[in-house]
Design a binder for these strands. Structure first.
Lengths: 193, 193
DNA sequence: ATTTAACAATTGAACGTTCATTCGGGTGCA
DNA sequence: TGCACCCGAATGAACGTTCAATTGTTAAAT
């Protein structure tokens, strides 16, 4: 009775996203998703072969939308500015789309992720980040540390921050956020240039 | 047929931990937990009033065990060493107890956490961290940034790192780990002392 | 020392509900 | 006429929880 806009497939996605956030993977029956999306239960099975597939597809959908958003910028900014920009775009996007954020978090830490981890399909987001960090190291702007170290700090702190904010722990969001990315920059920039 | 050691309550905890890691909150029926813990289904209801309560109690149990472990050290180390020590203890513990780690992650990002978030019961772990960071700031060793900023970086990077390692993405664990905590230290230490 | 009684712990079959999935039928468009 | 899309009641399996019955334990009473 809520989502009318979009085509049915997207309505199903959006409803699933909302309900899973509220009630979890369990606790969200297909019938409820259908009702919320204004379709019949059977219709979902026209688009997805099972509940698991629906959830898997929704995960890809969320991840793509997020990546589209954060890498949308003019390439010619100085490196440091891009470093701040991408991080802030990510935090912005997650805070503006809390349901997407929490769904992705829930998915990553559930056994679902095991189902797609193996897939060698080079994942767009990781590729982009890889190139971005590599550029920073090659040009001597970033310290020469491993990609996974950089990702852990860069993404880990962003998600932690979003968690704090959405939990309601963290007042003074803007200040905290500025402090955070600046500390990270301090930590990873090359000191001897 | 597996866990025989401990008393029944702990056997139920350990079985729940293992099975939820493998199959998720859903996908883990009480009957299966009972079978794995070598008790009858009804026995679980002698110790816990419902499945939800079992999961909530298990969460507290895991959190306490983790905190006991990471804050176990001699107070007289220099600040910087404690800063590295606690972080490494946390990473060590999670890597040695992957099931605890993933259960906590799953719990935090699920609707379960909403159920206990409100509880004002000053949570031991957060208190300890608060004092620890406060000490660093007051003595001028750490930059004067907000507690939640420090927590986001310190804990966020640790969990990110553990995720990378348990996903199997990150080879050369020891090097990556040393890089990470050093970068964080670089970022948060006071530059002008 | 033995009996007794109260209570705690344990069992697993049975119950009632919920839920993912199926299916037979309907509608509108090429 | 065929095909894609859509419906929602029906199905059947799975699951959380209950409960009457059994066993184990503790400690007061004899």
């Amino acid at each position: 009775m809520n989502v009318q806009l979009l085509n049915k497939k997207e309505a199903i996605f959006e409803s699933t996203l909302k309900l899973i956030n509220e009630y979890g993977f369990h606790g969200t029956p297909m019938s409820q998703i259908a009702a919320h999306a204004n379709v019949a239960t059977g219709t979902i099975y026209h688009y997805f072969s099972s509940k698991d597939e629906l959830i898997l597809e929704l995960f890809k959908y969320c991840r793509e939308k997020t990546n589209e958003h954060i890498f949308d910028f003019k390439e010619d900014l100085p490196y440091k500015e891009r470093f701040f920009y991408i991080w802030n775009r990510l935090v912005d996007y997650y805070i503006a789309h809390k349901e997407t954020f929490w769904f992705i978090e829930q998915f990553y830490s559930s056994p679902y992720y095991e189902l797609i981890k193996q897939k060698k399909t080079t994942y767009y987001g990781v590729d982009k980040m890889h190139l971005f960090f590599e550029e920073g190291i090659k040009s001597g702007i970033l310290r020469n540390v491993s990609f996974y170290t950089l990702i852990s700090i860069y993404i880990g702190s962003a998600t932690s921050h979003v968690k704090m904010v959405t939990y309601g722990f963290c007042k003074m969001q803007a200040k905290g956020r500025a402090e955070l990315i600046e500390i990270i920059w301090n930590g990873v920039k090359n000191q001897y240039q």
